[in-house]
Nucleic acid binder design. Structure first.
Lengths: 243, 243
DNA sequence: CGCGGGTTTGAGCCTACTCAACAGATGTGG
DNA sequence: CCACATCTGTTGAGTAGGCTCAAACCCGCG
């Protein structure tokens, strides 16, 4: 039976070269994969098992939820993303991971990881390096959330999502998938769903975007990028120094 | 000449056991240290050298600065903290690091790191794991910044700083050092210096805190913790699984 | 003694929120 | 296959939390 292609492998090989051993190890990591459904919590804060995962298909988010039920979306994950490698130092999962769409993932815990650390330390470092990009993005978003107006914040976030989107093979380069509802966009920005709606409405009315659910199109991404000071951290990725 | 004690080594040894080789490697990493002055930018965004550092004494912050000059403080570093290990995947430093006080640090770049990766992969993983805690804290702060009221946000942040403070050997356990001005606290919270001032004033008037510059005291930290849902991520640290 | 950085206080305003209601989609069980 | 529930999007009206602008004070320091 043919091996399903791995979004993670594809991305890694664009950034560095793997030897046969490493490719094999990666393949074994992804051997078992579980299918997961929309809205399912694949990792729950406070639990100690399955702290690490490779998202093989579908979208997921990391959510921080408060006592009053309000919550914030700190990360958005797409196929090929690594989840939880940024929590190595915590004894249990610090925040929830929720599926945004149906999908599939390979799950691990510390014992798998510590095996990998012994047998393929370089590979682990590569994976960690890749996943750290997400936290660089979070810092940009922290700035946006605290220092930009609601509209600029929204623009910044849409650019973030656009830059995440894997090359979908579609010719319309400026059309991208938006896997979040308006309420969820609000949770990612610290705004109300209602206000997000007004902003999106205003943007479409001014012909800045067009919404073609579940897709979206930004009419003048370059202008937006300039305006809100957006950086595409994925394009700036470089892990080749790890020889 | 006697070796100056290393805040980093102390912290690592509380969390796991190092063998003689690793202790030696760590010692060599910290051999050269440079003294740095308040307000000095020790790493500047966009540059490719000295991307990594061990902060040996003093306090520093990571700042994200926008085109209009507004900025946000995403991280606060204290002695023994690792800086830049969370940016492994970026080709250049993504954000500025600024000294908040005079201090000293040991600086590295990717070549040092890739040597370390080859000779002491476990040690590098330990260091990375430790430094990732800071990003877990940032996610908590992201939630606070987007979903809590200004006063709760401020309480949350003060608890964060208090939990960072190294055991100062002082008996007053509830008194801690506050290395940020009100304007800087505002940058860490997404508030104006003026509003931070009003909040602090109100808290002291209600006898919730006392300000004894450069120290500060929270009168009822347990109540605050409950109220804003604060987690002490440093206490939850666990890197012992990396055998 | 003057200067700059940090703090304090007042007055007025605007951005983003709350509450409320409805329309459209989606899904689900009988 | 329809009836009902739930989630999502849309719009209006009124409000308030945190902002802006302005000015003064304190203090350490050159």
């Amino acid at each position: 039976m043919k091996v399903t292609s791995s979004a993670l492998l594809l991305r890694l090989e664009q950034l560095t070269t793997l030897d046969a051993d490493e490719r094999q190890a990666l393949h074994e990591l992804e051997r078992d994969s579980r299918s997961v459904k929309k809205r399912e919590a694949v990792m729950r804060r406070g639990t100690v098992h399955n702290n690490f995962a490779i998202l093989r298909s579908g979208w997921a988010t990391r959510r921080v939820t408060g006592a009053d039920g309000r919550s914030a979306i700190t990360h958005v994950f797409c196929p090929g993303d690594l989840i939880g490698l940024c929590d190595l130092g915590t004894q249990s999962t610090p925040h929830d991971i929720i599926m945004q769409t149906d999908g599939s993932m390979s799950l691990f815990d510390t014992s798998d990881l510590s095996r990998l650390a012994q047998k393929h330390p370089r590979l682990l470092l590569l994976l960690i390096s890749m996943s750290q990009i997400e936290d660089v993005v979070l810092r940009d978003r922290f700035y946006a959330a605290t220092r930009l107006s609601a509209e600029d914040r929204l623009m910044h976030f849409l650019l973030c999502i656009q830059s995440k989107v894997p090359n979908q093979g579609e010719k319309c380069a400026d059309r991208f998938q938006m896997p979040l509802s308006q309420k969820e966009i609000g949770d990612a920005l610290g705004l109300t769903d209602i206000y997000v709606n007004r902003l999106l409405r205003s943007l479409t009315d001014r012909d800045e975007i067009s919404v073609e659910r579940p897709y979206m199109r930004i009419k003048a991404p370059a202008r937006w990028t300039e305006r809100v000071g957006f950086h595409d951290r994925y394009q700036e990725t470089d892990i080749a120094w790890l020889t």
